[in-house]
């Protein structure tokens, strides 16, 4: 959150050329969202969050419940490349996942 704000500020302040602003965009933080669906089992989703992300049992179950009740949850943050890896891994496990720029 704070880092995204920081990059906006510096772009406005210094009027960067396009090359540098491209660099910035590559470094911008991304997040991976898992969406609710009526097929994937709660046990399974929690297991995936624990085994793939290394989340604790309580954290994994909290994220799983968030997906279930709110329809979506952010499960990981990081640079674009990592988000791409994570979203592909979630797809391999059959979860509905998308990546987006972090707010």
């Amino acid at each position: 959150m704070s880092s995204a704000e920081g990059s906006t500020l510096s772009r406005e302040e210094t009027g960067l050329d396009s090359e540098f602003s491209q660099l910035l965009s590559a470094a911008r933080p991304y997040q991976v969202v898992v969406w609710n669906d009526p097929v994937n089992l709660m046990t399974y989703v929690s297991w995936v969050f624990r085994s793939y992300f290394g989340h604790s049992k309580s954290r994994a179950e909290k994220l799983m419940m968030q997906v279930h009740e709110e329809g979506r949850a952010v499960v990981s943050h990081g640079p674009r490349e990592k988000a791409e890896q994570d979203v592909t891994a979630m797809h391999q496990y059959g979860l509905q996942a998308t990546l987006e720029e972090a707010e």
Partner: peptide
């Protein structure tokens, strides 16, 4: 699938700190 993952969940090591580390800088 439910019976398989119920059994597998029992043998997952509890790694309680990884998530805290990961989220520390994301507020």
């Amino acid at each position: 699938q439910e019976t398989l993952f119920s059994a597998m969940t029992e043998f997952l090591p509890e790694r309680g700190t990884a998530d805290d580390d990961e989220n520390a800088d994301e507020a």
